[in-house]
Design a protein around this nucleic acid. Structure first.
Length: 118
DNA sequence: CCCCTGACTAATA
DNA sequence: GTATTAGCCAGGG
């Protein structure tokens, strides 16, 4: 089954530790840049055995998913901090430094940071 | 086939 | 900064 959600799961599984991706970004990588909601749907219906780092998938504005997603934004925030994600004082993610860049992510890994861009 | 829901996003006020 | 509207896609009834 090569449905949209298969791609979503695969893409999400590629998110490196210390980085975060937006729903719309995942959708774009799957070929449907306007399917951000479908991505959220896929996450909600994601089988547990896939072990997807869905806590690394956040809203584009830097906010975290609703409470019912991970049992509380507080939980998700701690998980992300534990993985090296930087947060602002207001509790929002520092997208500027932690946003995953698929096209440069391999290079970024070599550099150790994700601020390198072409 | 039609209608509804949803872990989204962008634009607007 | 927040609230609201509208558009988008994939399932389920």
């Amino acid at each position: 089954m090569n449905s949209f959600r298969e791609k979503v799961y695969h893409t999400v599984s590629l998110i490196p530790r210390g980085k975060v991706a937006a729903y719309g970004q995942i959708a774009s990588l799957c070929g449907n840049p306007l399917a951000a909601r479908a991505v959220g749907w896929a996450m909600r219906n994601a089988p547990g055995f896939l072990d997807l780092p869905c806590h690394r998938v956040v809203n584009k504005n830097g906010s975290l998913a609703p409470d019912y997603a991970f049992g509380g934004e507080q939980i998700q925030r701690e998980m992300l901090i534990d993985e090296g994600i930087l947060f602002k004082d207001n509790g929002c993610i520092d997208m500027k430094s932690c946003l995953w860049i698929p096209e440069d992510f391999t290079v970024s890994e070599e550099q150790g940071q994700g601020l390198i861009k072409k």
